[in-house]
Write a protein that binds this DNA or RNA. Structure first.
Lengths: 343, 343
DNA sequence: CATGCTTCTGTGAGCGTTCACAGTAGAGAA
DNA sequence: TTCTCTACTGTGAACGCTCACAGAAGCATG
């Protein structure tokens, strides 16, 4: 006859139980729980032992009720969900943020705001104070959700440089311009001169900066900037394919192609392949991101590595700082050229 | 001089404010909030108007404190995170569950338990009652986390058939065996007779069932089952590539290949391509899942569609039912053959 | 008229925690 | 001794909500 309690959830111990077990008061237990200042070593030890013995875990709801904090944060995606499915970068970012937060014992709430209705619901949820802050992923420029949250005074850190010049916005981004410069310099060093570019959306700073880096380096090298060598996409694979096709039509003598994301570069490879161009013999192809798409492509993509692990870590750091009362801040992280088979 | 409150979060209205505004008591407001039974239409209307006017949103912490429910659900991944990065299926499932839960106004907490430490921390978090239930994604067989949660009486729904025959386990799965049968029948109908298979891990029911379906159909058709035509992988792209390579070496006369996941099939395509086999002319290739990997592959993969949207919806439905006190249940959903270019 | 039933409403208690405050004990200074 | 200061501890109140209960009002039944 076993004493199994399978299937039933028994009432968990409260701070009161711990206090009784340790022979101290609730206040003392609470102090131990929250940093342990002004607690005697004796009490400290007794409480910790009692916690272990009872298996006590703090009731976050009771705590939140009185502190006003929820001790949870939201990961908000305002993109249409297809992008979420397709783009491996999101996963890396999401997983990085989840783990960075886990180190602080803070749960991450996933919020998908693809449609207008969802945006409304989620905005309401957030401004009601159900999360302490928001990690926002949005390639959009002046995201209305971001604007609304900011006005409501919700701590917010954005991934990627936001459009408005607002200095009151926290964000973490890779150095887009510098990365683009590295790639174009690399292509030039291979002897390429007719270098095409499929840029990102030009209503986003990321898209603009990568294009700017491309133009700068060409100018510096005295290479003509040809508008027929420039098209823009939306970071989707399909737009990369379409972009490369257009470039091939407009500028058949193209001997290199810089694509502003690995996913678009995959699409570009498909188009080049279909057109009978060999990569890298006929056309050198460079991507951007160093996402899993880069290594999966054939040939494996030379690309600009964005340090996603550091990006997510910095996002979490900035957000927690902001929740703690510090001012918004921006962090720009360096990129790195990764050479593979496509150049 | 504007009355902006930018940057400051003012104290939100409470149920008390709404009650005063509507000229009723807290109890009445609470009743309206929770279903509206035993409330007069007059009061009902007054309360709703007051809620709109004050912008009231219920404080979930206060509610949870008394109800004992957290009104939130955990989405738990016990796989190593690389799989999460690589496999597009996870995203579809995650996003589907998030949205299905959103319809019930229930937030989803993302829990990544790749390492031993994380598993411990997360198990503790869950059993402490911080979530009402768990959606579990795990291809492992007898997942120790699942076992522990089950013993603690935590409502749990698994994605994919679990290994043990425990009838007390809720799960949702596609009909693996039937899907495999469809695919092999399709390959046979193309005149193929030397059909290879890269199966999933054979310590998971999904892996076993797909292989079983393959064997059944071959037997029924009177085609010899040749062990040299069978290898198993772990659903990763790399294992698909390695598997196909091995099959080519063991059985060079292979004229079709059934791969137990699209991601592995992508890898297999790479291997076939390298070996100079044309797809589908020399070898017909069939995948499983109908994930985004299937359409991205060249040639696009003929595959077995798993209805991920329905799977996530069913998982959420079963979990909420279980939280509501119903018994665990299993749901098997039908699959569908999707013909593309690879066969 | 009393009685019961149904529908509706208000009230007090309590969920488990933190926080402010009051208070105690011991050490050192006047 | 007396006072002050520091280190520590306990207590009541409060956070915002739900729940159980008591009671009122309306209506039909005995």
């Amino acid at each position: 006859m076993t004493m199994s309690n399978t299937g039933g959830r028994r009432k968990p111990p409260t701070i009161h139980d711990v206090a009784r077990e340790a022979g101290v008061s609730r206040g003392t237990v609470s102090r131990v729980l929250n940093g342990g200042h002004y607690v005697s070593p004796t009490a400290q030890k007794a409480v910790n032992a009692a916690i272990r013995r009872t298996g006590y875990v703090v009731n976050r709801h009771a705590r939140s009720l009185i502190t006003g904090r929820s001790d949870s944060i939201g990961f908000l995606l305002t993109e249409p969900q297809e992008r979420f499915f397709e783009d491996p970068n999101f996963n890396v970012l999401l997983s990085g943020c989840t783990q960075a937060l886990a180190a602080h014992d803070i749960p991450l709430l996933l919020m998908l705001a693809g449609t207008r209705d969802e945006r409304r619901r989620i905005t309401r949820y957030i401004t009601a104070g159900h999360v302490d802050g928001v990690l926002l992923v949005s390639s959009h420029s002046g995201d209305p959700v971001a604007e609304e949250l900011r006005e409501a005074g919700v701590p917010l850190v954005q991934c990627g440089k936001p459009m408005g010049l607002g200095s009151k916005v926290s964000y973490v981004a890779a150095d887009d311009r510098d990365g683009a410069r590295d790639m174009v310099r690399h292509l030039l060093s291979l002897g390429r001169r007719r270098i095409g570019m499929v840029s990102g959306p030009l209503d986003t700073p990321g898209g603009v900066d990568r294009l700017a880096g491309y133009k700068e380096v060409l100018s510096e090298a005295g290479v003509e900037i040809d508008d027929r060598l420039i098209v823009s996409g939306d970071y989707s694979r399909a737009s990369g394919e379409a972009g490369a096709e257009r470039l091939l039509a407009q500028a058949p003598d193209m001997d290199a192609l810089f694509v502003a994301s690995d996913l678009m570069a995959q699409g570009a490879l498909t188009a080049l392949n279909r057109a009978g161009r060999r990569v890298p013999e006929d056309v050198s192809v460079g991507g951007f991101d160093d996402s899993s798409a880069a290594t999966e492509a054939t040939p494996a993509l030379t690309t600009i590595r964005q340090p996603y692990d550091r990006i997510s870590a910095e996002m979490v750091r900035l957000l927690l700082a902001q929740i703690g009362g510090e001012d918004p801040a921006a962090v720009i992280l360096p990129t790195e050229l990764v050479k593979r088979e496509s150049t």
